[in-house]
Nucleic acid binder design. Structure first.
Length: 583
DNA sequence: ACATCATGTTGCC
DNA sequence: TGGCAACCCTGATG
């Protein structure tokens, strides 16, 4: 409260403020805001000490100042924001975590603080007879001792500022264990901006590709300071390796093509173009989002922003069937996933608040529709048996659906977890640990921060979805940014994280060399200036050839870099043009 | 320690 | 259905 100014005046007429106070829960006109009814008087430059104001304006001075208002609800008397490393919510809004009114995240029952950090509610639904049946059945099948989860919880190496924009997807190489692919995305509007302020149709006429970046990084050779440069590709919404040839990668692109990129050369060619007639206006321009490959059927599956699914033969590049509407017409299909065992089964999810299970032989009706309250960011079959489905929705809930022991009408588990939508962040997606034999470990980054000894950090959460328990929250003091993209290695005890423009490789603590050893050359700084997070990329060793070494010092100063644009040559991510031209 | 800005999407009307 | 605001913990930069 020391941050409140002593003298307050309502900032006047933000047109929408009145509307915002009306649209959000007009029920909460509590006595905490006596001055709200007196705005007119206050605007008459009645100035009050904020503390006495709460005691009903007794005196008026002449001083004029601006009243501090809450940046969330635009009202006075409180202020949302950080107090040190703890974020204080606006009390006028529903809980930012569970979305229920009446409390804030600090008091949220889904954010019980134990030791340090957040523990979710054990589960929302009461146990049903199905649960007990499930337990009895599964107990006969699994070993008595459930193997312990392996949590890669210590940063082993990192590439700082690898990409020029935020990272959108990560993919481990299917055969080379040490290769990580990363994609970023230049937004269409930015594309408009720097390409002479043109629009999509002009770009189309000019045959300008929309540029996203594809990074290929050998994270073991970071020691030897070898980082492959970035390969330009078209804007990637999703990528998958070609199951028949791990040297090529398929990409679903917003330009409506399925691209096939050769990782050696960086050359790519379109497998399919769903805008064969070119630009007919934004209402008809189709963009591809969800994608997966099916090696049994030799098809690439992609889905677009109008709800349609397309199948392309990988070898002949022929479309396999008529375009099929699989989600509400006009809504984006953001995710596709093929069942790991049964090649006919397909899972899709999209902006119509549904995830759907399909039999690919009979796509006119879905086998099941999993309803969510908000947009579904992702939906994945469990990696081994495919019997469970993990979905992430924008209502801040992770759901597990059981196709064997559950009825799929409602999730078998709901975990409240902070992963809100934010236009600046890549959408969060909960992902299975592909190595977990019990198919229960899932990872997802957390939006809201926790105060870790004075530092506001956004952990990466590991859930045991079979119990709903948070089993690990992984943090690193030097990663102060949110980590929406996380991928667990399919074979090694490794996890990759994309956080803002940087990539981090985690391993279990006992598998990481001691810090003294790794300080030498495990953090590579790419591109831009070196103002980065504290230790990572801190002081640079400019005498080095093409990378910066991390010194692990200056963990205090966040902006301690000096100049240092010079020393990055071949390693760096090519900076995007950042022209300010706008029409 | 601030201010600014980039600029996507959802959901409502 | 199309148009249009609101959007809460961003992150980089100056």
């Amino acid at each position: 409260m020391t941050s409140f100014p002593r003298v307050l005046i309502e900032r006047d007429t933000d047109g929408e403020d009145s509307s915002s106070s009306s649209d959000d829960d007009g029920d909460e006109e509590e006595e905490g805001e006596p001055e709200h009814q007196n705005v007119a008087e206050i605007k008459e430059s009645v100035v009050e000490d904020w503390e006495s104001e709460s005691k009903k304006k007794s005196k008026a001075s002449i001083t004029i100042a601006f009243k501090k208002v809450c940046k969330v609800c635009k009202r006075s008397g409180h202020e949302a924001g950080f107090r040190g490393a703890t974020y204080v919510d606006c009390p006028m809004k529903p809980c930012f975590l569970c979305k229920m009114p009446g409390h804030t995240t600090i008091d949220c029952p889904h954010r019980v603080v134990l030791d340090q950090g957040a523990v979710p509610a054990p589960r929302r639904n009461n146990r049903s007879p199905l649960d007990y049946i499930f337990e009895r059945q599964i107990q006969n099948k699994i070993p008595m001792m459930k193997p312990a989860f392996v949590i890669p919880d210590q940063v082993d190496c990192a590439v700082i500022r690898y990409h020029s924009r935020r990272i959108t997807c990560l993919e481990f190489h299917p055969t080379n264990n040490n290769i990580l692919l990363s994609g970023d995305k230049v937004c269409v509007t930015q594309f408009f901006a720097f390409n002479v302020a043109c629009s999509y149709d002009i770009a189309y006429d000019l045959e300008i590709g929309i540029i996203g970046q594809l990074g290929v990084w050998d994270f073991v050779k970071v020691h030897e300071k070898t980082v492959y440069g970035n390969i330009h590709s078209c804007i990637l919404n999703n990528m998958r390796f070609n199951p028949a040839n791990d040297g090529t990668l398929f990409g679903a692109s917003s330009d409506g093509t399925v691209s096939c990129t050769d990782l050696e050369t960086g050359m790519s060619f379109p497998l399919m173009d769903i805008n064969p007639n070119g630009w007919q206006g934004p209402s008809t321009w189709r963009m591809l989002y969800g994608m997966d490959t099916n090696s049994d059927k030799n098809v690439v599956l992609v889905a677009d922003n109008f709800g349609y699914l397309y199948l392309v033969d990988m070898r002949s590049n022929e479309k396999m069937r008529e375009d099929t509407l699989i989600h509400k017409r006009g809504t984006k299909v953001v995710g596709l996933h093929c069942h790991p065992i049964q090649p006919e089964l397909l899972l899709s999810c999209g902006n119509d608040h549904f995830a759907r299970i399909w039999d690919m032989r009979k796509l006119d009706a879905s086998l099941a529709s999993l309803h969510h309250n908000r947009v579904v960011n992702s939906a994945y079959f469990s990696p081994q048996s495919g019997s469970k489905i993990l979905t992430t929705a924008q209502d801040n809930r992770i759901r597990v659906w059981d196709s064997i022991f559950g009825n799929l009408l409602s999730p078998s588990r709901e975990i409240v977890h902070s992963h809100d939508f934010n236009r600046h962040l890549t959408p969060f997606r909960a992902e299975w640990d592909p190595k977990d034999p019990s198919e229960s470990l899932a990872v997802i980054g957390r939006y809201i921060s926790e105060n870790y000894n004075g530092a506001a950090l956004h952990p990466i959460d590991f859930f045991d979805t079979s119990t709903g328990q948070l089993v690990a929250e992984v943090t690193e003091p030097n990663i102060t940014t949110i980590s929406p993209v996380n991928k667990i290695h399919p074979r090694d005890e490794v996890m990759a994280t994309g956080s803002s423009r940087s990539i981090f490789i985690w391993r279990p603590k006992d598998k990481v060399e001691r810090v003294e050893e790794r300080e030498d050359a495990k953090i590579v700084l790419c591109g831009g200036s070196k103002k980065t997070n504290k230790k990572f990329g801190g002081e640079s060793d400019e005498s080095d050839d093409d990378t910066f070494n991390s010194k692990g010092k200056n963990s205090k100063s966040k902006r301690d870099g000096k100049s240092g644009r010079s020393a990055l040559t071949k390693v760096k991510a090519k900076p995007m043009k950042n022209s300010k031209t706008k029409s």
